[in-house]
Amino acid sequence: MLQRLRENKAWQGTLLALPTTLWLFVLLVIPLFLTLVVSFGRRSPDGGVIYGFSFHNYLRLIGYSTNCPAGQSACFDPLYAQILWRSLTLAFWTTVIVILLAYPLAYFIARSHPRRRNTFLMLVLVPLWTNFVIRVYAWMMLLREQGVINGVLGWIAAQFGLPFQPLQMLYTPGAVLVGMVYEFLPFMILPIFTSLEKIELPLYEAAADLGANPFRTFLRVTLPLSMPGVVAGTILVFIPVMGTFIVSDLLGGKQVILVGNLIQNQFLSARDPTFGSAASLILMIMTLIVTYFYTRKFGFGEEIITA
């Protein structure tokens, strides 16, 4: 038996993949299937599930409503579609801003002296030692009406004898965006750093030698070679931002509801697991579609600039 295993590569592969396959089957495939089944059902009056096959929940998500002014049996209510769109755009802008902030920093770290590099990387990782939720709370302390930022601004205004009205920063889309960017920045810095670090110094020299100034070297050599890092970082940032609800919950309050909050509400307070399931699946499908087209366009980052 052992002898055969030693000789049979296919067996070895199967054996090695077995634990993960089981794990994924039990904890991903089965729950996903259950979610799908539930999403086609209807909410029972006590918050349970009446199984069936209806697209009602999906129609609700794109604006079909039965909760209409008198006289109409069906009408258009964009509420949920707006939430989906808001989640998508917020995730998009978060990712864009995170790339713009992370890239220069990753570049700086990658080109810094090897002895200092680890220190810088540590500094990037230090915030991750603190709990995610606590870091969001910290932003509440900074942004709220009597928070640190308003305090400092008020103090400065007082020095010049100017009137000061505390800024409303908390519970705005901007606050959610800032929080998201802050939370997910390290997940962009690390992959970009990794791919930048792999670029060997002679490549920069070769580009310069062939007549490329630093700007063109960046466009034609550095950027394309670091695209795998940008792609990886984008996936690491975009997908969780699409689904997270803590940041929007704490920094956005009732003002900025994302699809993550919607799902959370349906399962916990509205007690409609069928609608929550449908929203979860739609979120997953949206994310998959975006990721699919994104990776198809950018591949592994080769040849994007060099047409």
């Binding site: 020299e205 580009a207 030698d209 062939l210 490329a212 100034n213 070679l225 980052g301 060099t306």
Partner: peptide, 24 residues
């Protein structure tokens, strides 16, 4: 700077751009 000198270099480990074809 190197990009303004009329000399070109063949590097020790070639330093070819891996993301480009031979032609590129």
């Amino acid at each position: 700077p190197p990009f303004q000198r009329k000399v070109n270099t063949v590097f020790q480990n070639y330093a070819l751009f891996q993301h480009m074809t031979v032609y590129q």
